[in-house]
Computed example of a mutant assay.
Amino acid sequence: MAAILNQPHFQDAEKAREYLEALRWPHGVVCPHCGVIGSATALTGNKNYRPGLYKCTACTDQFTVTVGTVFERSKIALNVWLQAVHLMCASKKGISAKQLERMLGVTYKTAWFMAHRIREAMKSESGSLLGGPGSSGIVEADETYWGNATDENDKPVAKPRGGFRHKMMIVSLVERDGNKRSIHVPNVNGQSLAAVLKSQVSEKARLMTDSAKYYRKVGKEFASHEYVDHGKKEYARGDVTTNTVECSFAILKRGLIGTFHSVSEKHLQRYCTEFDYRWNTRTTAGYSDTMRADALLAQIGGKRLTYRRTDCQPQALV
């Protein structure tokens, strides 16, 4: 069996373009400017026309398959982009920009920017609430802490005598046998958790948490709120547990600690999004590495990210 990166679309830019067109336009060429399907004509016969250039007969604009995507205006060959997508989708605990630099043969700055553009494409397109119809109805919620928080001047917050106020805070919601959403929040308290839960979880869901008091009030707004008391060494009571969300934290922390080592607060949400995407397209959900990468390529439209919007400061220097 040939190595996966030896496939034609990973080795040849034209094959990569054809592969991406088949994924993005399964029902015919779609104009990214006006949205009309099947009205575009391939421009050929002129040496000035680059391969894959189309003209929409409805709005008369020209475009390629990368217009309006995270790949737009990139000088990196499309087959190299597909290699980067596959590597990030297949790496359970992530892959650092330095590793992408070595494997893809690009500069570190380029690898870092490519990784952030791919993370932009990993953002969920579903606006549905967790625990709603068609799901198990059970949503586990928990929070975790990472690194050291920074102030408005990007300076580390002073460490208090106790507690986690100097840490960056992440709240994760995991649908039992379903999807996960992680949100980087400035504070963990009743107000911030209520805002997250109300915006992300169906009121018909069974909410399951630990015994932290800041879940008590907002928990009354769901079908039920059940919790386990870790202080009494209770980790499961029937089907009431937070083991699933805590398992997801283990994978996230292994990636942040072992792969990236250092992730700044201004980029933390992007890394959470990356780990959420791989969780939501995990093997037990029926995805292979190739299917996971293909699913990502199918949703790259409308998610263009410029270097300026990333604050132009490469992070995670490993």
Rank of each mutant, 00 (worst) to 15 (best):
M1P: 03
A2F: 12
A3C: 06
A3M: 10
L5W: 06
F10N: 06
D12A: 08
A13H: 11
E14T: 14
E18F: 09
Y19R: 15
E21C: 08
G28Y: 00
V30Y: 00
P32A: 04
G35K: 04
T41F: 14
A42S: 12
L43S: 00
R50N: 07
Q62C: 15
Q62I: 11
T66M: 01
V67Y: 10
V70L: 15
F71V: 06
F71N: 09
F71C: 08
S74K: 09
K75S: 11
K75W: 03
V80D: 05
C89R: 01
C89M: 08
K93A: 09
G94R: 02
I95L: 13
K98A: 09
M103A: 08
L104N: 06
G105N: 00
K109V: 09
T110P: 05
A111W: 02
A115K: 15
H116W: 04
R117H: 08
A121W: 01
M122A: 02
K123S: 07
E125V: 12
G127Y: 01
G127C: 04
S128E: 14
G131H: 07
P133T: 09
G134H: 09
G134C: 05
I138N: 11
A141R: 00
W146R: 10
N153E: 13
K155C: 06
V157I: 15
G162H: 14
R165Y: 07
R165E: 14
M168A: 09
R176L: 08
D177M: 07
I183G: 02
P186F: 01
N187F: 12
N189S: 05
N189A: 00
L193S: 05
L207N: 07
M208C: 13
A212N: 04
A223Q: 12
E226M: 07
E226Y: 04
Y227D: 02
V228N: 05
V228R: 04
Y235W: 10
A236M: 11
G238V: 03
N243F: 00
N243P: 08
T244V: 14
S248N: 13
A250Q: 11
L252N: 01
K253I: 05
I257W: 13
S262D: 10
V263L: 00
H267Y: 14
L268I: 03
Y271I: 02
C272M: 15
D276W: 04
R282P: 15
T283Q: 12
D294R: 13
A295K: 14
A295V: 01
A298C: 10
R309L: 10
T310F: 05
A316Q: 11
